[in-house]
């Protein structure tokens, strides 16, 4: 008869610890990529081929706002993420905080696929060095009911026309609305307003407020208000509101008025806290594959930066007419003026 040696408490603890730690020991030798981004930017169409090609394990964190994203990066000084994506207007904030560094574009050969207008974007360059790689874009267009407008309105002035009083809505966002008011007032640079400009914009927005049925907060809220209240015109939060309205039976269409509409351009970049820097570059390279751009536009209704034909097919041919977001002169002032408009 075999006598089993009783397991001592110490042996047991040591054995258990080794057992628990073993996957971690194996994992440490595997490649791991930690992505911070927006929903729709890491889809199986380009994630799966990337995983197969590199054998890497990928963890993804999505955020709901640009502020939340900055807080997450700042909180760990970038150490929690390898690769991250945000819009061009916030790049100075990240560069100043030391959370991102100039990129080595020789590690991203697919930048050759970039459409010409996305090769040299001043907003993501500093001192001749490039800090980001353009990936996705969109706008805040005018959305209208095509049954009421057989031809698309060509100017924001239509939203100041008393004829459509109580048949219009606008998003409730301080920064976007000040930019909008500045564009509609014909101010050359809507991101660098003087005190006099602020007065003009404020008067302009108060005039518009009297004609609006309501402001709306959030993508779906705008679509619901539009569909339920016979709305004809809306200062929208983005392209995806058009298919959402169509799904509710509204014959919706979008227009970029001649004064321009705010446009945003999201770019991938590498965190200064990245562990596997080459893997981060490999991810950015995979995102610039021409098949990735096609999948992005067809699946999410965002514009891509590599495949012009797909953008054209989706109707996204107005990149040149957009007023690309820049860092604003004073966000606090924008919120204060917006509050004055709403309290007027």
């Amino acid at each position: 008869m075999i006598k089993l040696k009783p397991i001592s408490r110490r042996t047991f603890v040591a054995g258990a610890a080794a057992l628990i730690a073993s996957p971690a020991i194996v994992r440490a030798q595997e490649k791991k990529l930690r992505i911070l981004g927006w929903e729709g930017y890491v889809e199986p169409e380009w994630l799966d081929p990337f995983k197969q090609a590199t054998g890497a394990e990928v963890s993804i964190v999505y955020v709901g706002s640009a502020d939340e994203m900055f807080a997450k990066m700042q909180g760990s000084k970038g150490a929690d993420f390898d690769v991250v994506s945000f819009d061009t207007s916030i790049f100075p904030r990240y560069i100043d905080a030391g959370l991102i560094a100039p990129l080595d574009l020789s590690k991203v050969p697919n930048t050759a696929n970039l459409a010409p207008e996305f090769r040299e974007v001043a907003a993501i360059q500093r001192d001749g060095k490039q800090y980001g790689v353009p990936f996705g874009w969109g706008s805040l267009p005018l959305i209208y009911d095509a049954d009421a407008f057989p031809t698309a309105p060509d100017s924001w002035a239509v939203m100041w026309d008393p004829q459509y009083a109580q048949q219009m809505i606008a998003q409730d966002d301080a920064n976007n609305c000040i930019t909008w008011g500045a564009l509609a007032s014909g101010i050359a640079n809507p991101y660098n307003l003087s005190d006099a400009d602020f007065e003009t914009v404020k008067a302009k927005l108060i005039e518009n407020k009297k004609l609006l049925l309501s402001y709306y907060a959030g993508f779906d809220e705008g679509v619901t208000l539009f569909a339920d209240n016979g709305i004809k015109l809306m200062y929208s939060m983005g392209e995806p509101q058009v298919p959402a309205l169509k799904a509710k039976g509204v014959n919706a269409a979008l227009a970029i008025p001649k004064e321009g509409a705010p446009g945003w351009l999201d770019c991938w970049t590498v965190s200064t806290g990245a562990v596997d820097v080459d893997l981060a570059y490999a991810w950015i390279n995979a995102c610039l594959d021409s098949t990735t751009g096609k999948a992005l536009t067809q699946k999410t209704a965002f514009g891509n930066t590599t495949n012009t034909e797909v953008n054209t097919a989706a109707g996204m041919t107005y990149g040149a007419k957009l007023s690309w977001l820049l860092p604003a002169e004073n966000y606090e002032k924008r919120v204060a003026v917006w509050n004055e408009v709403k309290a007027a």
Binding site: D67, A174, S214, E332, W338, N339, K342
Partner: peptide, 20 residues
């Protein structure tokens, strides 16, 4: 609608973009 602006909304607006 456009008149639905109360002090709660002012407070709310100080905690986002304004960061005040």
């Amino acid at each position: 609608g456009t008149t639905g602006f109360t002090i709660g909304r002012v407070i709310w607006s100080q905690f986002g973009l304004a960061y005040n």
